[in-house]
Every structure is written in C-alpha cells, then in structure tokens.
C-alpha cells in the first residue's frame, strides 16, 4: 500500500521505526511488574513511519494488530513462509482501519495534484494498485462511484484528528483491587506530523480515495495471481 500511495521510505536497515498502529491498541494499558507500560508512541514524521514492516519495532507484549491478523510471524523463529488465513478481523482492519484510509487519501491526493482528468485518474489508480488499466465497464463503474461519493462527501464535515498530549488510564490496583485512574503525559505527540486526513481533502479527493480503498480491499490486490 505504501508503494502504491508513493509514501514508502525505501531506506534499508537502521534503527527500528515506530509506525502508527490502531490507537485503541496503542493506548491499551498493559500491566508490567508493579506498573503500567507506556503507550505506543509513533515516530513524529511520516517518512520515519512509512517504512517496510520489517523495520518496525517489535515488542513481545504489544504487536501491531493489523500485522497480527495477517499471520505476522513470531519473534522467536525464522519464518520461511507465512501461513495464509481468511478471517473477518482482516476485513475490519483493511476496510475500517486508519492505515488503509490514510494510504487511499495519499494516493488520491497524489493523482489529483497532477491535474489528471477523471478517466486518467481512475486509470492511474488501477495502474498504481493493480498494475493494469481498468476494463471499460470497470472504468465506467468507478467513474459513477466517484461522482456519487463526491456528492455524498460534500455534505460531510470531518473533524481534524490530533494525537492526545495526555491520556487518562484506568487500571485495577494490584494490592487493593480498586480502580485507579491517572494521566499519562505524551509530550512526544506535540511534534507529531499526521498523515493526510479526510479533513485535509476536498470531497472530490475523498471520493477518489474511496475507489483506492476499494481497490486496496480487492482480491486482486490482496492475493497473488
């Protein structure tokens, strides 16, 4: 997806990076001896975050749920080939997850920045994601979809999303069994430069991003021919 959206940082090796992961998991309190582990803090800059998953920091007690539903190998053994599975959480992750949406918006914005005509933009979507041009019926279906979605999107006001500078955490105290709440401060989030969000884009871009999202979810993209 990062390749298709043109965002992949192709640097080889180096210090492990910290991509954005599902925020529910990033902020999920995890007990460590006598305390609670710190929240997952992504790298501040997009180009730092957008690397191959091979280079992402791996914590045993906190793994990226998106990789997990796609048979992420464990850290203990070499893995010559991943298992393949089809499970519903993959759908939730790819269809509703922040990652696919951000890649779709980035690709759509990239295509429209080149001032492409509608037909060209749809063709380039297919080329970037599926490495082929669409058939005439596919092109027609996508153009109609884009028009409909642009109309739909025009009426939606997306809130701008920020990473919080502090989060309230509630845990059950080990010695007393009582619920205890406290604030964890996340000063690193002050420097965080977010990926392109729906709030940054006009309705036309968001409409094209819908096509990208659908293509990223298609069997043709996910499976190897």
């Amino acid at each position: 997806m990062l390749v298709a959206s043109g965002e992949l940082n192709r640097t080889v090796g180096g210090i492990p990076n910290r991509p954005e992961i599902n925020p529910e998991v990033a902020f999920q309190p995890r007990t460590v001896m006598g305390s609670v582990a710190a929240a997952w803090t992504p790298n501040p800059l997009p180009q730092q975050r957008h690397r191959r998953s091979l280079y992402a920091l791996k914590l045993r007690g906190l793994s990226d749920p998106m990789l997990e539903v796609f048979n992420k190998p464990g850290p203990d053994f070499s893995c010559e080939r991943r298992d393949t599975s089809t499970v519903t959480p993959q759908v939730f992750s790819l269809l509703n997850g922040k990652n696919t949406l951000a890649r779709s918006l980035a690709l759509a914005a990239d295509l429209l920045a080149a001032d492409a005509k509608d037909e060209q933009a749809v063709d380039q979507c297919f080329e970037r994601i599926l490495s082929r041009t669409p058939t005439p019926p596919e092109r027609a279906a996508c153009l109609a979809h884009w028009r409909d979605l642009t109309k739909l999107e025009a009426s939606v006001n997306y809130p701008r999303q920020h990473l919080p500078l502090k989060i309230q955490r509630t845990v059950i105290e080990e010695m007393t069994g009582e619920m205890v709440s406290f604030f964890e401060h996340l000063p690193a989030h002050a420097d965080f430069v977010p990926d392109l969000q729906p709030a940054d884009c006009d309705a036309r871009t968001r409409g094209l991003a819908s096509i990208c999202l659908v293509l990223f979810n298609s069997n043709e993209f996910i499976t190897v021919d």
Binding site: N22, L95, L101, S210, L213, V214, S218, N219
Partner: peptide
C-alpha cells in the same frame, strides 16, 4: 468490542454499502 469494528468518524453506512458494492463487482 472488536478493533476497527466501526468505520472512521464521518463514514456513513450508505458510504460503506456503496464501497462494498463496488468491491463485490470488482471481485
């Protein structure tokens, strides 16, 4: 209860249904 069970804020059910219909036809 399940991660990513709901779509991102602002995405309506109509929006999702249309995306899924396009996906089904491509698939």
């Amino acid at each position: 209860p399940i991660l990513d069970l709901t779509p991102p804020t602002g995405v309506t059910s109509e929006h999702q249904r249309r995306n899924l219909d396009l996906l089904a036809s491509l698939n």
